[in-house]
């Protein structure tokens, strides 16, 4: 079964009926997609493009109008498949009166973690989410970033093979967003398959191995992140101490070999990198 893709979707279509007249709205249009195991897979697209609907269909939360799909080689409605996946929905709400630890324990029980393993699994999940210290506080007191991190902890407490994250960094500041990015990397190192649904393209670029881009319910691009972003025939050289004379000499040398300098700019750091360097708690 391990040669089966983590998620396989074939000719998937989903129509919603809206309004009193039941006008048909097509959310997913004949989508075919295969998400390999052991990778971080980014599912991208603008709001309303069908990303979340696709995930909900695959997780068995919404019925498809037509098409077929499997989860880890199983029917997504089967308990075997459900026990092997973890899901963090967009903007999740958890019971405010529970502590973070109680919430993760509750989810561990529901996910079928053996009674004698619940405490250890809870501790591990809280540690992975960097929520050990805040674990004894009530969920109602958590910040947005902490809510997302405790959401991640509940999604991974049963050590699933496949983790589906729907907008895990929505509304989270760059520091919290970077922390979630690190958690995703840590899970990948453990051999998990992660499906990341987001429109924070910078983060997706940093953490994803492959991406798929959806627009109006259709797949418009799919491939390895390096392949889809590469500009063929163009190369970048970083130089330190470039004087005007050195630059002219370099351009002449390159010209002799048929190459042309397109632009010479000082490299820019990203605003996110700058912010993370300046703000407390964001340094590695």
């Amino acid at each position: 079964m391990t040669d089966q893709p983590a998620i396989s979707v074939r000719d998937l279509t989903k129509d919603f009926r809206v309004g009193l007249r039941g006008v048909k709205l097509r959310a997913v249009d004949n989508l075919t997609l295969s998400i390999p195991r052991g990778q971080v897979y980014g599912l991208l697209g603008p709001n309303g493009c069908g990303k979340s609907t696709t995930l909900k269909i695959v997780l068995g939360l919404v019925p498809a109008t037509s098409g077929s799909f499997t989860l880890l080689g199983h029917d997504s409605a089967s308990p075997e498949a459900r026990a092997r996946i973890g899901f963090l929905p967009e903007a999740p709400y958890f019971h405010r009166f529970l502590t973070g630890r109680e919430l993760v324990r509750y989810c561990a029980r529901l996910s079928g973690v053996a009674a004698d393993r619940v405490d250890a699994a809870t501790d591990e999940a809280l540690e992975l989410a960097s929520m050990t210290e805040a674990g004894n506080r009530r969920v109602g007191t958590y910040s947005k970033g902490m809510l997302q991190r405790i959401g991640l902890a509940q999604a991974v407490v049963h050590d699933p093979e496949l983790i589906v994250l729907d907008e895990p960094t929505a509304g989270v500041d760059p520091v919290g967003s970077a922390a979630i990015g690190k958690m995703i990397q840590a899970m990948r190192q453990r051999g998990k398959t992660i499906v990341l649904c987001s429109h924070l393209l910078g983060q997706v670029e940093q953490v994803c191995d492959r991406i798929a881009v959806m627009d109006r319910g259709r797949l418009v691009l799919e491939g390895h992140i390096d392949e889809v972003l590469a500009q063929r025939g163009v190369h970048q050289i970083s130089v330190e101490g470039l004087t005007p004379a050195a630059r002219q000499a370099a351009e002449e040398a390159l010209s002799r070999h048929g190459a042309h300098v397109l632009k010479v700019d000082p490299p820019r750091q990203t605003l996110e990198d700058l912010f993370r360097r300046l703000v407390t708690g964001s340094r590695d």
Binding site: K56, L61, L110
Partner: peptide, 14 residues
């Protein structure tokens, strides 16, 4: 409405 049901029903909960 709060999507808690989504979180729970994605688990092996019928």
């Amino acid at each position: 409405d709060n999507r808690t049901a989504l979180t729970l029903l994605a688990k092996p909960v019928g």
